[in-house]
Amino acid sequence: MTSNNPNVVAIGGGTGLSMLLRGLKEKPIDITAIVTVADDGGSSGRLRNELQMPPPGDIRNVLAALSETEPLFEELLQYRFPNGNGLSGHSVGNLLLAALTNITGDFAKGVRELSRVLNVRGKVLPAANQSIMLSAVMVDGTIVDGESNIPRHGDKIAKVYLTPSDVEPLQESIDALREADLIIIGPGSLYTSILPNLLVPKLGVEICRSKAKKVYVCNVMTQKGETDHFTASDHVRVLLDHIPDDCLDTVIVNHQSVPQQILKRYEMEGAEPVSLDRKKLESFGLKIISDNLIKYDQSVIRHDERKLANLIMQLLP
């Protein structure tokens, strides 16, 4: 039975996308999340290398965010073994996705089956049904291979690209984009969570071809080794360096200030608030929505998922 709810597609990865989806799942919309499979570090990287499967970590986070199961079961999904020969560092959810990939013989089918078990609100789709390698060309011409290596290199990124360059998206992702009323890009690590999705050739084309309104949710903090000293317009400029200029309609940016004691802690990590440079941002011809959009979770800065979801709902036709 077809729903009459608006169709919303959210694209990205990492904790940013998960926070957004926690807010959106309470709304009367049909959600499809298209999630990066470029991760090559930690538990995801080990499973990717040992089992020759797409990395499950970003998918796991999104499944947890959209699940409507018991809180204890979500906690179980995210539980990471602190020790144990071969188990140390692995999360239960990653291992479940690895097992289901082996059982079904297909990563996307494994994600679909775990979605059903978790009573996930909406669809969660990997950006591709295979692992992809993310590489960066630095401003000095150096090429750095691997999503986890790029922020550690310490130089400014000129551009990123995928190997294989002709990776195919799932047909379900193409269909979701064609049926979308609203497409949300971000929040999340600009080069390593967002761009790997947009660089999947047919995904990028379908996003730009879509008649849906397209909104970019800008990060609230910069990321060391990736977006050092970036303003809001710097984030948008990088997106438009990788996709056509007329692909975005709207940008959502935080303008809430951060308390000094929290700023000091982030300074030690090489991060600072993303400033709203409105005049430069206006030069892109985008609609700008700015608001107080942050909350604090044990001194960690996050997007306020409820405020963000409310702003996004106002963009629906």
Rank of each mutant, 00 (worst) to 15 (best):
P6A: 04
V8Y: 02
I11D: 03
T15F: 11
T15K: 00
G23W: 01
P28C: 08
D30R: 06
A33I: 08
A38M: 11
D39V: 13
D39Q: 02
S44N: 04
E50K: 06
L63D: 00
T69C: 15
T69I: 15
E74L: 03
L77I: 15
L77A: 09
L77V: 13
Q78E: 15
G89T: 07
S91Q: 04
G93S: 10
L96P: 02
T101W: 12
A108T: 06
L114N: 04
L118T: 09
G122H: 04
A127C: 15
Q130R: 14
A136Q: 06
D140Q: 06
T142V: 11
D145K: 11
E147I: 09
I150A: 02
I157Q: 03
I157D: 04
D166A: 12
Q171W: 09
E172G: 01
E179G: 01
D181Y: 04
L182R: 00
I184P: 08
P187E: 07
L198F: 10
L199G: 04
V200Y: 11
V200T: 11
G204H: 07
I207D: 06
M221I: 14
K224Q: 12
T227I: 07
D245V: 05
L248V: 09
I252C: 02
Q256W: 05
L263V: 14
R278A: 06
K279N: 09
L286Y: 12
I289W: 06
V300T: 10
I301E: 01
